[in-house]
Write a protein that binds this DNA or RNA. Structure first.
Lengths: 152, 152
DNA sequence: CTTGAAAGAAGACCGCG
DNA sequence: CGCGGTCTTCTTTCAAG
């Protein structure tokens, strides 16, 4: 956990709202000079609070109309199994997210495909050949809303 | 689905790899001039293929050490129930993602909290008071890997 | 905080198929 | 007319006073 004052948090809120905003814009909105805002942003990056900035693509417009969440339960659960599974799953391009979780499942995968036949191909040829998978549960994404989440 | 040629896809790959890259850098990497690359990027934005660029914050460094995924099953499933649920859940700042899904659950929520006591507070005072919730299932996030996903 | 040099953004304009 | 290339201007970045 890193120290952030109210100004830092205001900067983060402004950047979450618009990640493309320049240091000058941020400063103007908060009553700071451009270099002052810029230095604070750099400090937040260096501290790792801001991990980076990533592109938000519309998978559907790229021809990937199907997103499925897979709950995965492993059979054998040594630490070697986890590593094997993670390494194998990392080689599947259709897998967008690998979440190691605690609860009903061991992993949750976000998988995209062009359509349902394409998803079946991924499932049969890629997912079902993963090492150590004992059971699978699938949920098809209908719609999704992402929200900023709490800052401070 | 939008038309993208191989050059567009190369641009998207480069931007996914580094969302902060300038049009000049992208162009240099692909053998295009700065304005040519810039025009293509703008076109991809206008077409909605690039939805935008969002800040990637480290929740842990901001003091939110706990991330939990909640699978939610609704009791009453008229279309009014879905709207009521979505509206109510949108008012909870700790909820980062609302996914409407098809399968074992109706919704999946990504919830962050400072620690487990804080999560209990959110669960009891916010989540359990949501309208129409019939059953809940929780998974605690241990670690997560995000990958670029397929482009074309 | 202010300044200043280097880089990037973004428009006007031309040439090609 | 799409698309790319050059030239040009304005803004932003980022380091140094």
């Amino acid at each position: 956990m890193i120290e952030t004052d109210e100004t830092d948090r205001a900067i983060l809120r402004a950047l979450v709202d618009n990640a493309d905003a320049s240091a000058g814009e941020i400063g103007r909105a908060l009553g700071l000079s451009q270099p002052a805002a810029w230095r604070r942003i750099r400090r937040l990056r260096e501290a790792g609070v801001i991990r980076g900035t990533r592109l938000d693509l519309d998978a559907e417009k790229l021809g990937f109309g199907v997103t499925v969440f897979l709950g995965v339960k492993l059979g054998t659960k040594g630490q070697a199994s986890l590593g094997d599974f993670e390494r194998a799953v990392s080689a599947i391009p259709e897998v967008q997210t690998v979440e190691h979780i605690l609860g009903m499942y061991d992993y949750r995968l976000r998988v995209v495909a062009r359509d349902l036949p394409d998803f079946e191909r991924v499932l049969r040829r890629r997912i079902m050949t993963l090492p150590g998978v004992a059971s699978l549960d699938a949920n098809v994404l209908l719609s999704e809303e992402r929200r900023p989440g709490p800052i401070g």
